Amino acid sequence: MSLPSVELLESRHTFPGPYTFKVIGSAEANFTGRVIAHVRDELRMELDPPYSLRSTKKGDHVSITIEPECESPQQVIAIYSRLTGMDGLFMLL
């Protein structure tokens, strides 16, 4: 996956502000918890950012929409970098 550039992020979003990440992965091995933990760690948050979940009918995959407050495009890129290497990741938008 290629990461978005700072210029692209700045042209499409206002910083600081919320940024929406869509993460799809395996429903096993605490995938959701690991995604939330990566975002919290990167942004040094004490509480979980707003997020919602959707599971497939079989329950073997989960889609996580997470909307943390990001101060800069560099933070968005750093979160993408952390998430791209996760075990169980199928898609990141």
Results as ranks from 00 to 15, higher is better:
residue 1 M to F: 10
residue 1 M to P: 13
residue 2 S to I: 15
residue 2 S to F: 08
residue 3 L to C: 08
residue 4 P to Q: 11
residue 4 P to H: 08
residue 5 S to V: 15
residue 5 S to G: 12
residue 7 E to I: 14
residue 9 L to N: 03
residue 9 L to C: 08
residue 9 L to T: 11
residue 10 E to Y: 07
residue 11 S to N: 07
residue 12 R to Y: 14
residue 12 R to S: 15
residue 12 R to I: 12
residue 14 T to R: 14
residue 14 T to E: 13
residue 14 T to L: 14
residue 16 P to R: 10
residue 16 P to G: 12
residue 19 Y to H: 13
residue 19 Y to L: 12
residue 20 T to P: 15
residue 20 T to L: 15
residue 20 T to E: 15
residue 21 F to S: 14
residue 21 F to Y: 13
residue 22 K to H: 09
residue 22 K to A: 06
residue 22 K to F: 06
residue 22 K to S: 08
residue 22 K to T: 05
residue 23 V to D: 11
residue 23 V to M: 14
residue 23 V to E: 12
residue 23 V to I: 07
residue 24 I to A: 02
residue 24 I to G: 02
residue 25 G to P: 11
residue 25 G to A: 11
residue 26 S to W: 06
residue 27 A to G: 01
residue 28 E to P: 04
residue 28 E to H: 10
residue 28 E to K: 11
residue 29 A to G: 05
residue 30 N to A: 09
residue 32 T to I: 09
residue 32 T to L: 06
residue 32 T to V: 13
residue 33 G to W: 07
residue 33 G to Q: 05
residue 34 R to M: 08
residue 35 V to K: 04
residue 35 V to E: 07
residue 35 V to Q: 07
residue 36 I to H: 00
residue 36 I to C: 02
residue 36 I to V: 14
residue 36 I to A: 02
residue 37 A to K: 00
residue 39 V to L: 03
residue 40 R to S: 11
residue 40 R to A: 12
residue 41 D to P: 04
residue 41 D to A: 08
residue 41 D to G: 10
residue 42 E to P: 07
residue 45 M to E: 05
residue 47 L to S: 03
residue 47 L to W: 01
residue 47 L to T: 00
residue 49 P to V: 01
residue 50 P to L: 03
residue 51 Y to W: 06
residue 51 Y to V: 00
residue 52 S to P: 08
residue 52 S to I: 01
residue 52 S to Q: 07
residue 53 L to E: 04
residue 53 L to K: 02
residue 54 R to W: 13
residue 54 R to I: 04
residue 55 S to P: 00
residue 56 T to H: 07
residue 56 T to Q: 03
residue 57 K to Q: 04
residue 58 K to P: 00
residue 58 K to E: 09
residue 59 G to N: 00
residue 59 G to E: 01
residue 59 G to W: 01
residue 60 D to S: 05
residue 60 D to K: 07
residue 60 D to P: 02
residue 61 H to R: 07
residue 61 H to E: 06
residue 62 V to W: 01
residue 62 V to P: 00
residue 64 I to F: 05
residue 64 I to A: 04
residue 65 T to S: 11
residue 67 E to R: 05
residue 68 P to L: 02
residue 68 P to I: 00
residue 68 P to T: 01
residue 68 P to K: 02
residue 69 E to V: 09
residue 69 E to L: 10
residue 70 C to G: 08
residue 70 C to T: 10
residue 71 E to F: 11
residue 72 S to Q: 12
residue 73 P to G: 15
residue 73 P to T: 15
residue 73 P to F: 12
residue 74 Q to C: 12
residue 74 Q to D: 14
residue 75 Q to K: 06
residue 75 Q to S: 13
residue 75 Q to C: 12
residue 76 V to I: 13
residue 77 I to S: 13
residue 77 I to A: 12
residue 77 I to H: 09
residue 78 A to N: 11
residue 78 A to D: 06
residue 79 I to T: 07
residue 79 I to N: 11
residue 80 Y to C: 15
residue 81 S to H: 05
residue 81 S to A: 12
residue 81 S to T: 13
residue 82 R to C: 06
residue 82 R to T: 01
residue 83 L to V: 03
residue 83 L to E: 08
residue 84 T to F: 12
residue 87 D to V: 15
residue 88 G to W: 03
residue 88 G to T: 09
residue 89 L to F: 08
residue 89 L to I: 13
residue 89 L to T: 07
residue 90 F to K: 03
residue 90 F to E: 06
residue 90 F to V: 14
residue 90 F to Q: 03
residue 92 L to W: 06
residue 93 L to A: 06
residue 93 L to Y: 05
residue 93 L to D: 05
